[in-house]
């Protein structure tokens, strides 16, 4: 089976692409594919704690991300620089998320046969 890396680049509520990416990641995991997720750029904002998007008629993406271990999806990573740029600390993230520097992200990409970018 070919390992697939899904990269989440979009802020959570600007459009629907962030949600589409997370749904795809959960589908890969549900179909028992070796699946990894990397949050990068404004996409790290999907990991922000205490999201309350109900006033704009949206559902919390953080809640969806918190469910990833239920799909045996725990190879989940976040870009260290992007976290710093967006004011997020490691303690804000779900416990199963690993923070990676740029060199570790290149290594992560090289370990995967497919890279899908959302």
């Amino acid at each position: 089976m070919k390992p697939t890396l899904l990269v989440m680049n979009r802020a959570p509520y600007a459009g629907t692409l962030a949600r589409a990416g997370l749904d795809a990641a959960l589908a890969y995991a549900a179909f028992d594919q070796p699946t990894s997720v990397l949050f990068a750029g404004p996409g790290v904002l999907q990991l922000a704690p205490a999201q309350e998007p109900a006033p704009i008629g949206r559902k919390s993406l953080r809640r969806l991300i918190d469910s990833m271990p239920l799909y045996d999806l725990e190879a989940v990573y976040a870009d260290a620089d992007a976290l710093a740029r967006h004011g997020l600390a490691a303690g804000d993230l779900p416990a199963f998320v690993t923070v990676l520097d740029a060199a570790a992200q290149r290594e992560l990409q090289e370990r995967h046969a497919h890279l899908l970018s959302f």
Binding site: M1, K2, T4, V7, N9, R10, L17, G21, D23, A24, A27, Y28, F31, Q33, A40, G41, P42, G43, D79, A82, A113, H114, L115, L116, S117, F118
Partner: peptide
């Protein structure tokens, strides 16, 4: 989405068009 999973599982290369740039 199973049809996307099936397509990439069979493929050597997958290309995304129109996703967000980092």
């Amino acid at each position: 989405l199973g049809l996307l999973v099936e397509a990439t599982a069979a493929a050597d290369r997958t290309l995304t068009f129109g996703g967000g740039a980092p």
